[in-house]
């Protein structure tokens, strides 16, 4: 399972880098999202994958064979932050498109020097 997830994380990072290097701002934002999802998965895997009950789930299983809840808490926090950032990035993209009329980042830098 770890190996499979490691490959998935690698693919997500690769896709993220590829998208980040594109000229379109939409793809740029998608790339950032891929990055953040890959990182969340990385934390999950690094925290250790154990097939067990969640902690504090029932009374009997309080200590026996429970997973570490902290990586999940970290991921949850990271997801919430990523969510806020996505909302901001989408708003930025929209304003950007409105005021420049293009989603191509290269055209824009040329415009800056003129």
């Amino acid at each position: 399972m770890e190996t499979l997830l490691a490959i998935v994380i690698g693919i997500l990072y690769a896709a993220g880098v590829y998208l980040l290097l594109r000229r379109s701002i939409v793809k740029l934002i998608l790339g950032i999202l891929f990055f953040s999802h890959a990182t969340n998965l990385l934390i999950l895997v690094a925290g250790g994958l154990v097939r067990a009950l969640p902690q504090f789930a029932g009374d009997a299983s309080l200590t026996v064979n429970s997973t570490d809840p902290l990586p999940q808490a970290l991921i949850l926090t990271a997801i919430v932050i990523g969510f806020g950032i996505t909302a901001f990035a989408l708003a930025l993209m929209y304003r950007f498109y409105k005021s420049t009329g293009t989603e191509d980042l290269d055209e824009l830098t040329e415009g800056e020097h003129k």
């Binding site: 806020g84 909302a87 901001f88 989408l90 708003a91 929209y94 409105k98």
Partner: peptide, 12 residues
């Protein structure tokens, strides 16, 4: 916060 962001985006 969600309503602020989304309403602002919808109004434009």
């Amino acid at each position: 916060v969600m309503l602020t962001i989304i309403f602002n985006l919808m109004e434009e």
